[in-house]
Protein backbone atom coordinates (compact mmCIF):
# COMPACT_ATOMS: atom_id res chain seq x y z
CA UNK A 1 0.00 0.00 0.00
CA UNK A 2 1.35 3.43 -1.04
CA UNK A 3 1.94 6.13 1.54
CA UNK A 4 -0.41 8.96 0.54
CA UNK A 5 0.60 11.41 3.28
CA UNK A 6 2.44 13.86 1.02
CA UNK A 7 -0.17 13.76 -1.82
CA UNK A 8 -2.81 14.38 0.87
CA UNK A 9 -0.94 17.46 2.14
CA UNK A 10 -1.01 18.71 -1.45
CA UNK A 11 -4.76 18.03 -1.62
CA UNK A 12 -5.22 20.12 1.52
CA UNK A 13 -3.01 22.92 0.15
CA UNK A 14 -5.02 23.08 -3.07
CA UNK A 15 -8.34 22.97 -1.26
CA UNK A 16 -7.45 25.74 1.17
CA UNK A 17 -5.72 28.09 -1.27
CA UNK A 18 -7.12 27.45 -4.77
CA UNK A 19 -10.87 28.01 -5.21
CA UNK A 20 -12.45 25.58 -7.74
CA UNK A 21 -13.07 27.12 -11.20
CA UNK A 22 -16.84 26.51 -11.17
CA UNK A 23 -17.18 28.50 -7.93
CA UNK A 24 -14.97 31.32 -9.17
CA UNK A 25 -16.94 31.51 -12.41
CA UNK A 26 -20.22 31.84 -10.51
CA UNK A 27 -18.75 34.55 -8.25
CA UNK A 28 -17.47 36.47 -11.27
CA UNK A 29 -20.98 36.38 -12.75
CA UNK A 30 -22.40 37.54 -9.40
CA UNK A 31 -20.00 40.49 -9.38
CA UNK A 32 -21.27 41.62 -12.80
CA UNK A 33 -24.85 41.66 -11.55
CA UNK A 34 -24.18 44.13 -8.73
CA UNK A 35 -24.47 47.86 -9.42
CA UNK A 36 -21.14 49.55 -9.92
CA UNK A 37 -20.18 51.69 -6.95
CA UNK A 38 -22.38 49.67 -4.56
CA UNK A 39 -21.05 48.09 -1.35
CA UNK A 40 -22.09 44.72 -2.81
CA UNK A 41 -19.95 45.29 -5.89
CA UNK A 42 -17.05 46.37 -3.68
CA UNK A 43 -17.40 43.18 -1.63
CA UNK A 44 -17.37 41.01 -4.76
CA UNK A 45 -14.30 42.85 -6.05
CA UNK A 46 -12.45 42.15 -2.80
CA UNK A 47 -13.59 38.52 -2.85
CA UNK A 48 -12.29 37.95 -6.37
CA UNK A 49 -9.01 39.76 -5.70
CA UNK A 50 -8.56 37.59 -2.64
CA UNK A 51 -9.22 34.42 -4.64
CA UNK A 52 -6.47 35.35 -7.13
CA UNK A 53 -4.05 36.38 -4.40
CA UNK A 54 -4.55 33.20 -2.38
CA UNK A 55 -3.93 31.06 -5.44
CA UNK A 56 -0.79 32.99 -6.35
CA UNK A 57 0.70 32.95 -2.85
CA UNK A 58 -0.56 29.55 -1.68
CA UNK A 59 -2.18 31.15 1.35
CA UNK A 60 -5.58 30.21 2.77
CA UNK A 61 -8.52 31.85 0.98
CA UNK A 62 -10.21 32.19 4.38
CA UNK A 63 -8.49 32.02 7.76
CA UNK A 64 -11.28 29.76 8.97
CA UNK A 65 -10.18 26.56 7.30
CA UNK A 66 -13.07 24.82 8.98
CA UNK A 67 -13.49 21.18 9.83
CA UNK A 68 -11.66 19.16 7.19
CA UNK A 69 -14.28 16.73 5.83
CA UNK A 70 -12.84 13.80 3.87
CA UNK A 71 -14.69 11.25 1.77
CA UNK A 72 -12.44 8.33 0.88
CA UNK A 73 -13.40 5.68 -1.67
CA UNK A 74 -10.85 2.89 -1.79
CA UNK A 75 -10.61 -0.50 -3.53
CA UNK A 76 -10.24 -3.88 -1.87
CA UNK A 77 -6.77 -4.42 -0.45
CA UNK A 78 -6.28 -0.92 0.96
CA UNK A 79 -6.37 -0.42 4.70
CA UNK A 80 -8.85 2.17 5.99
CA UNK A 81 -6.94 2.15 9.27
CA UNK A 82 -3.68 3.13 7.55
CA UNK A 83 -5.41 5.67 5.32
CA UNK A 84 -6.89 7.29 8.39
CA UNK A 85 -3.46 7.55 9.99
CA UNK A 86 -2.05 9.11 6.79
CA UNK A 87 -4.91 11.61 6.59
CA UNK A 88 -4.40 12.65 10.21
CA UNK A 89 -0.64 13.03 9.65
CA UNK A 90 -1.32 15.09 6.52
CA UNK A 91 -3.72 17.36 8.41
CA UNK A 92 -1.15 17.99 11.14
CA UNK A 93 1.57 18.67 8.56
CA UNK A 94 -0.69 21.05 6.56
CA UNK A 95 -1.36 22.93 9.80
CA UNK A 96 2.38 23.26 10.41
CA UNK A 97 2.76 24.68 6.89
CA UNK A 98 -0.01 27.27 7.54
CA UNK A 99 -2.42 25.83 4.96
CA UNK A 100 -4.80 25.17 7.84
CA UNK A 101 -5.51 27.08 11.04
CA UNK A 102 -5.36 25.02 14.24
CA UNK A 103 -9.11 24.60 14.68
CA UNK A 104 -9.72 21.62 16.98
CA UNK A 105 -10.89 22.92 20.36
CA UNK A 106 -11.80 20.50 23.16
CA UNK A 107 -15.35 21.56 24.08
CA UNK A 108 -14.87 20.61 27.73
CA UNK A 109 -11.36 21.78 28.58
CA UNK A 110 -11.42 24.63 25.95
CA UNK A 111 -7.92 23.57 24.89
CA UNK A 112 -6.93 23.95 21.24
CA UNK A 113 -4.93 20.87 20.23
CA UNK A 114 -2.73 23.08 18.05
CA UNK A 115 -2.45 20.61 15.16
CA UNK A 116 -6.08 20.20 14.01
CA UNK A 117 -6.29 16.70 15.45
CA UNK A 118 -9.15 16.16 17.82
CA UNK A 119 -11.43 13.25 18.54
CA UNK A 120 -12.51 10.69 15.95
CA UNK A 121 -14.70 13.26 14.14
CA UNK A 122 -11.96 15.88 13.82
CA UNK A 123 -11.00 15.72 11.02
CA UNK A 124 -14.15 14.02 9.76
CA UNK A 125 -13.38 11.02 7.55
CA UNK A 126 -15.96 8.90 5.72
CA UNK A 127 -14.71 5.62 4.25
CA UNK A 128 -16.31 3.43 1.62
CA UNK A 129 -14.85 0.38 -0.08
CA UNK A 130 -15.62 0.46 -3.80
CA UNK A 131 -15.09 -1.60 -6.98
CA UNK A 132 -12.13 -0.88 -9.27
CA UNK A 133 -8.55 0.01 -8.44
CA UNK A 134 -8.57 3.77 -7.82
CA UNK A 135 -8.49 5.63 -4.54
CA UNK A 136 -10.60 8.79 -4.70
CA UNK A 137 -10.39 11.34 -1.90
CA UNK A 138 -12.78 14.30 -1.76
CA UNK A 139 -12.06 17.08 0.70
CA UNK A 140 -14.29 19.94 1.79
CA UNK A 141 -13.30 22.75 4.15
CA UNK A 142 -16.34 24.34 5.73
CA UNK A 143 -15.81 27.20 8.15
CA UNK A 144 -17.72 27.97 11.33
CA UNK A 145 -19.49 31.11 10.14
CA UNK A 146 -21.53 29.27 7.54
CA UNK A 147 -21.76 26.12 9.65
CA UNK A 148 -23.42 28.13 12.43
CA UNK A 149 -26.24 29.35 10.16
CA UNK A 150 -27.15 25.85 8.97
CA UNK A 151 -30.62 24.79 10.13
CA UNK A 152 -32.83 21.76 10.44
CA UNK A 153 -36.63 21.86 10.30
CA UNK A 154 -39.05 19.17 11.38
CA UNK A 155 -42.14 19.41 9.21
CA UNK A 156 -44.94 20.28 9.56
CA UNK A 157 -43.98 23.70 10.90
CA UNK A 158 -47.04 25.80 11.61
CA UNK A 159 -45.17 29.10 12.15
CA UNK A 160 -44.01 28.90 8.54
CA UNK A 161 -47.16 27.22 7.24
CA UNK A 162 -44.85 24.49 5.95
CA UNK A 163 -46.39 21.06 5.34
CA UNK A 164 -44.76 17.73 4.52
CA UNK A 165 -44.19 18.29 0.83
CA UNK A 166 -41.88 20.18 -1.52
CA UNK A 167 -43.84 23.38 -0.92
CA UNK A 168 -43.03 23.00 2.77
CA UNK A 169 -39.38 22.35 1.92
CA UNK A 170 -39.33 25.62 -0.04
CA UNK A 171 -40.68 27.58 2.92
CA UNK A 172 -38.17 26.06 5.34
CA UNK A 173 -35.25 26.85 3.02
CA UNK A 174 -36.40 30.46 2.48
CA UNK A 175 -36.66 30.93 6.23
CA UNK A 176 -33.15 29.53 6.81
CA UNK A 177 -31.62 31.92 4.27
CA UNK A 178 -33.46 34.94 5.66
CA UNK A 179 -32.30 34.07 9.18
CA UNK A 180 -28.70 33.63 7.99
CA UNK A 181 -28.58 37.20 6.64
CA UNK A 182 -24.96 37.89 5.66
CA UNK A 183 -23.52 35.88 8.54
CA UNK A 184 -22.73 32.78 6.52
CA UNK A 185 -20.61 34.93 4.17
CA UNK A 186 -23.07 35.40 1.34
CA UNK A 187 -23.33 34.84 -1.54
CA UNK A 188 -23.73 31.23 -0.48
CA UNK A 189 -24.49 27.80 -1.88
CA UNK A 190 -27.34 25.82 -0.34
CA UNK A 191 -27.09 22.08 0.29
CA UNK A 192 -30.50 20.72 1.25
CA UNK A 193 -31.43 17.22 2.38
CA UNK A 194 -35.04 16.08 2.60
CA UNK A 195 -35.68 13.10 4.87
CA UNK A 196 -33.27 10.92 6.82
CA UNK A 197 -32.87 11.17 10.57
CA UNK A 198 -31.35 14.24 12.21
CA UNK A 199 -27.78 12.98 11.82
CA UNK A 200 -27.90 11.46 8.34
CA UNK A 201 -29.83 14.44 7.02
CA UNK A 202 -27.04 16.82 8.03
CA UNK A 203 -24.40 14.65 6.36
CA UNK A 204 -26.45 14.38 3.17
CA UNK A 205 -27.00 18.14 3.02
CA UNK A 206 -23.22 18.63 3.03
CA UNK A 207 -22.63 15.86 0.49
CA UNK A 208 -24.99 17.70 -1.88
CA UNK A 209 -22.47 20.57 -1.84
CA UNK A 210 -19.92 18.40 -3.66
CA UNK A 211 -22.02 18.70 -6.82
CA UNK A 212 -20.69 21.08 -9.51
CA UNK A 213 -22.29 24.55 -9.36
CA UNK A 214 -23.76 24.28 -12.86
CA UNK A 215 -25.02 20.69 -12.89
CA UNK A 216 -28.72 19.92 -13.01
CA UNK A 217 -30.56 17.63 -10.64
CA UNK A 218 -31.61 14.46 -12.53
CA UNK A 219 -35.01 14.62 -10.81
CA UNK A 220 -36.98 17.28 -12.75
CA UNK A 221 -39.08 18.21 -9.72
CA UNK A 222 -35.99 18.82 -7.59
CA UNK A 223 -34.24 20.59 -10.48
CA UNK A 224 -37.18 23.02 -10.65
CA UNK A 225 -37.13 23.57 -6.89
CA UNK A 226 -33.37 24.22 -6.93
CA UNK A 227 -33.83 26.89 -9.58
CA UNK A 228 -36.80 28.43 -7.79
CA UNK A 229 -34.98 28.59 -4.44
CA UNK A 230 -31.93 30.24 -5.95
CA UNK A 231 -34.17 32.87 -7.57
CA UNK A 232 -36.40 33.44 -4.56
CA UNK A 233 -33.59 33.66 -2.00
CA UNK A 234 -32.04 36.30 -4.25
CA UNK A 235 -35.30 38.25 -4.05
CA UNK A 236 -34.67 38.57 -0.29
CA UNK A 237 -32.11 41.25 -1.20
CA UNK A 238 -29.56 40.26 1.45
CA UNK A 239 -26.72 40.36 -1.06
CA UNK A 240 -22.97 39.82 -0.74
CA UNK A 241 -21.88 40.05 2.93
CA UNK A 242 -25.43 41.09 3.80
CA UNK A 243 -24.75 44.56 2.36
CA UNK A 244 -27.92 44.36 0.26
CA UNK A 245 -27.72 43.36 -3.39
CA UNK A 246 -28.79 40.99 -6.11
CA UNK A 247 -26.94 37.78 -5.30
CA UNK A 248 -27.58 36.11 -1.97
CA UNK A 249 -27.43 32.54 -3.28
CA UNK A 250 -25.22 31.27 -6.08
CA UNK A 251 -26.75 27.78 -6.38
CA UNK A 252 -29.02 25.31 -4.62
CA UNK A 253 -28.41 21.54 -4.44
CA UNK A 254 -31.14 19.27 -3.11
CA UNK A 255 -31.02 15.59 -2.24
CA UNK A 256 -33.87 13.26 -1.26
CA UNK A 257 -33.50 10.50 1.33
CA UNK A 258 -35.66 7.89 3.00
CA UNK A 259 -37.32 8.87 6.25
CA UNK A 260 -39.30 7.34 9.06
CA UNK A 261 -43.07 7.62 8.69
CA UNK A 262 -43.09 9.92 11.73
CA UNK A 263 -40.23 12.21 10.67
CA UNK A 264 -39.89 14.73 7.87
CA UNK A 265 -36.63 16.65 8.24
CA UNK A 266 -35.46 19.42 5.97
CA UNK A 267 -31.81 20.20 6.56
CA UNK A 268 -30.13 23.23 5.08
CA UNK A 269 -26.35 23.40 5.05
CA UNK A 270 -25.18 26.85 4.09
CA UNK A 271 -21.85 27.07 2.31
CA UNK A 272 -20.05 30.39 2.21
CA UNK A 273 -18.78 31.89 -1.05
CA UNK A 274 -15.37 30.38 -0.22
CA UNK A 275 -16.65 26.96 -1.26
CA UNK A 276 -13.47 24.96 -0.87
CA UNK A 277 -13.71 21.45 -2.22
CA UNK A 278 -11.20 19.41 -4.20
CA UNK A 279 -10.68 15.82 -5.37
CA UNK A 280 -7.61 13.63 -5.56
CA UNK A 281 -7.54 10.37 -7.54
CA UNK A 282 -4.78 7.82 -7.08
CA UNK A 283 -4.37 5.58 -10.12
CA UNK A 284 -1.35 3.32 -9.68
CA UNK A 285 1.65 5.59 -9.11
CA UNK A 286 -0.19 8.53 -10.62
CA UNK A 287 -1.98 11.16 -8.48
CA UNK A 288 -4.49 13.39 -10.25
CA UNK A 289 -5.96 16.54 -8.69
CA UNK A 290 -9.13 18.23 -9.88
Amino acid sequence: MQDLTEPLVELIRRTSTDLPPDVEKALTAAREREDSGSAARGAMDAILQNVALSRRNSTPICQDTGTPIFYVRYPEGWSARKLKEQIRNAVAEATKRSYLRPNAVDAISEKNSGNNLGDDSFPTIHFEEVEGDEVVVDLMLKGGGCENVGAQYSLPNSALGAGRDLKGVRKAALDAVQKAQGQGCAPGILGIAIGGDRGSSYYASKEALFRPIEDENPDPELAALEKQLTEETNQLGIGPMGFGGKTTTVATKITGMHRLPASFFVTVSYMCWAHRRRRMTVRGAEVIYE
Binding site: A43, A46, I47, Q49, N50, L53, S54, N57, T59, P60, I61, C62, Q63, G143, G145, G182, C185, M241, C272, W273, A274
Partner: peptide
Protein backbone atom coordinates in the same frame (compact mmCIF):
# COMPACT_ATOMS: atom_id res chain seq x y z
CA UNK B 1 -15.01 41.38 3.84
CA UNK B 2 -15.63 37.90 5.22
CA UNK B 3 -13.32 35.31 3.74
CA UNK B 4 -10.99 37.84 2.13
CA UNK B 5 -8.25 36.52 4.38
CA UNK B 6 -5.15 36.69 2.19
CA UNK B 7 -6.07 40.18 0.99
CA UNK B 8 -6.58 41.52 4.51
Amino acid sequence: IGGAASLI
